[in-house]
Design a protein around this nucleic acid. Structure first.
Length: 592
RNA sequence: GGUCCCGUAGCUCAGUUGGAUAGAGCGGCAGCCUUCUAAGCUGUAGGCCAUUGGUUCGAAUCCAAUCGGGAUCACCA
């Protein structure tokens, strides 16, 4: 059991023995003791002071005496300061923890809990390549899935590919008009970039047409509707829906180009999926849910035949579910897909990794499912993340102010190659291993950069300043791991050696305290669906290790006892760092 | 206009769900490689936690108002 939970239980067990009444977890808080005070863990007594109407000192004294008396193996002492009771944990606890787990590669991970969770992430449009915002989504989704696995959930990674709609038709029209039969092969381009270029070409042509119409005296709004290229695009969408063979053929061809491009990007950044849904397969789903909703009186039909739900009582608006021509809209498809996911996998929870611009939409989706009484409604959870913005504001594909995913990854790999070569520590590596190392470090820097921030918060990326490789970064932690491995290559812990239970130096103990908290961190990151908890933790552990490394020698330790102790600490630190980074989608090098 | 989110060091971010003297990295300054990897370590400067009021033993954290920034409210996705 995690130490902090043990302490909570002990306090909870002891309180009724000392005082009248019943006690719950909210009657006190347990936290790590601040470094400037003596002790390891702190019980905050103020809530009890209020409840029991006794002085903090009186409560603390009784509680401290009782705890040290009842659990002498765990608590060797306590000190009281205002309403804080600082407990000192018995040194053997740390040494025992080390001896017990130092060879355990699964340290910190949770028990299986027989719960199935689907994590939907990435969900690209097929009209343009991935950009920095997609990277945040992909890294978050992948990481959350792994974190949930580490906490004992069964996880299914899914993706909905938005492969049909007006946006694809724009690229298609532009290709028809401007490409002269060019292909990714003939132009030597990655397929997704190739198609993306035609999306841009569409918008350029469209803009020109609108300007032309406006200069002839048409109003902006009308011009946007009347521009011939836009009308042609809408016509194409209708043809697509009718299944016109020529349009379908072109659509297949261009989507195929995009997929071959995406495959490369996904492989590089390490995104993978257990199931991929295509909007072209699912966009008709959800219509039966509309019938169901009408029958239940949850939805209503207007005179023109369109179907709506009134959510004004919930503080939202009226929401359309079916157009008057009977075709479905985005939310209808989502209801259908949610149902399909549930029927297919019998999932307990369904997590959607989607940007916070869709907070309203996701709120509506969940609410409608709840009102329909669908069994999976309560399990729907929107993992809402903030946009990645540039110092100049939002990224916009149409205005060309996007940071392209492939470009950025390549740049990161180049920079890591440059650093690595300058440092010259791995000159003996064969070319293939070098390339792998450059990717490990470059991608590590990028992933850590995007995952170290709370997902809910929007973040700013400045393309002028390249992502750092020093300080609070992925490479810093990778480097720490490589340093440890360097020690362990020369010397291994003697498994037959029995460690003394006491005499830990401050930094040795600090490392053990930090390592012990790994399980708690994993749990917290899963509960909050927040990888940054792990990123911050791993950084702090690495930092503590580097202080330790500068202060104490392992190989030339002052005694055999210290050497054996430190080798085990090294081993466990390496496992925890490696495991942490793995959950963030990063690999750790043996050398760098 | 309605609803929702955000404002912490020059910059990028933490702040354990209301607890002790608000912390990191980058950037600045000053040191540390003859010893396990200097992508490192140590020290130092830098703050009216947007503003004002409230709630209480205690507020960056909760409430209200104000100022500033953003998202969303489509028969778009």
């Amino acid at each position: 059991m995690l130490l902090i939970e043990t302490i909570r239980e002990h306090v909870l067990a002891v309180l009724p023995e000392l005082f009248e009444g019943s006690f719950g977890p909210s009657d006190f808080q347990v936290s790590q003791t601040k470094p400037e005070f003596e002790g390891d863990y702190t019980v905050v007594l103020f809530s009890l002071v209020k409840k029991l109407k006794k002085s903090p000192d009186e409560i603390g004294k009784l509680l401290g005496e009782k705890l040290t008396e009842k659990y002498p193996d765990l608590y060797t002492g306590y000190s009281l300061l205002k309403g804080f009771m600082n407990l000192t944990i018995a040194e053997p606890y740390w040494v025992d923890m080390l001896s017990k787990h130092y060879t355990d590669p699964c340290f910190g991970k949770g028990e299986m809990r027989n719960q199935k969770v689907m994590v939907e992430y990435s969900s690209p449009n097929t009209n343009k390549p991935l950009h920095l915002g997609h990277l945040r989504n992909n890294f978050l989704g992948w990481s959350i899935a792994e974190i949930l696995k580490a906490n004992g959930y069964e996880v299914i990674k899914s993706c909905i590919v938005n492969d049909r709609g007006i946006h694809i038709c724009k690229s298609m029209i532009a290709w028809q008009r401007f490409a002269n039969g060019a292909t990714p092969e003939s132009s030597g381009m990655k397929g997704d970039h190739f198609v993306g270029d035609y999306y841009v070409k569409f918008n350029d042509a469209y803009k020109k047409e609108v300007e032309g119409l406006v200069s002839q005296g048409m109003k902006q709004e009308e011009a946007e509707k009347e521009a011939p290229i836009m009308k042609a695009t809408q016509e194409m969408l209708l043809q697509w829906e009718k299944g016109d063979p020529e349009v379908i053929d072109l659509w297949r061809k261009m989507n195929g180009w995009v997929y071959s491009g995406f495959d490369i990007t996904y492989k590089t950044i390490g995104s993978d999926f257990d199931v991929i849904y295509y909007e072209s397969d699912t966009y008709l789903l959800g219509k039966d849910a509309v019938e169901d909703g009408l029958a239940k009186g949850v939805f209503f039909r207007k005179d023109d035949g369109s179907v709506w739900i009134d959510l004004t009582a919930d503080g939202l608006d009226e929401k359309l579910l079916l157009r008057r021509d009977g075709t479905s809209v985005y939310i209808t498809q989502d209801i259908g897909l949610a149902k399909k996911k549930y029927e297919q996998y019998k999932i307990d929870q369904s997590i959607y990794v989607i940007g916070d611009e869709q907070n309203y939409h996701m709120k509506v989706l969940k609410l409608i499912c709840q009102k329909l009484g669908l069994p999976y409604a309560d399990g729907i959870h929107h993992l809402s993340y903030g946009m990645v913005e540039l110092p100049t504001g939002k990224m916009k594909s149409r205005e060309g102010t996007v940071v392209d995913a492939d470009d950025l990854v390549q740049e990161m790999v180049n920079i890591s190659a440059q650093h690595t070569q300058e440092l010259g520590k791995v000159k003996d590596f064969p070319e293939e291993a070098l390339q792998e190392l450059y990717e490990t470090i470059g991608l590590g820097a990028l992933k850590f950069f995007l995952l170290r921030v709370d997902p809910k918060k929007k973040m700013i990326f400045n393309p002028e300043e390249s992502i750092d490789f020093h300080g609070f970064t992925g490479p810093f932690i990778q480097y720490t791991h490589a340093r440890i491995k360097s020690i362990l290559r020369k010397e291994q812990a003697d498994t037959g050696y029995t460690l003394a239970k006491t005499g830990l130096l401050p930094l040795e103990k600090e490392l053990l305290v930090s390592i012990e908290q790994y399980g708690m961190v994993l749990k917290q990151s899963a509960e909050e669906l927040n990888p940054s908890v792990i990123a911050i933790y791993a950084y702090n552990l690495a930092k503590t290790f580097n202080s330790f490394y500068a202060e104490h020698s392992v190989a030339n330790a002052e005694s055999e006892e210290k050497k054996q102790l430190r080798l085990r600490i090294c081993g466990m630190t390496a496992v925890v760092l490696s495991s942490s980074l793995q959950l963030l989608g990063m690999s750790v090098p043996e050398r760098m």
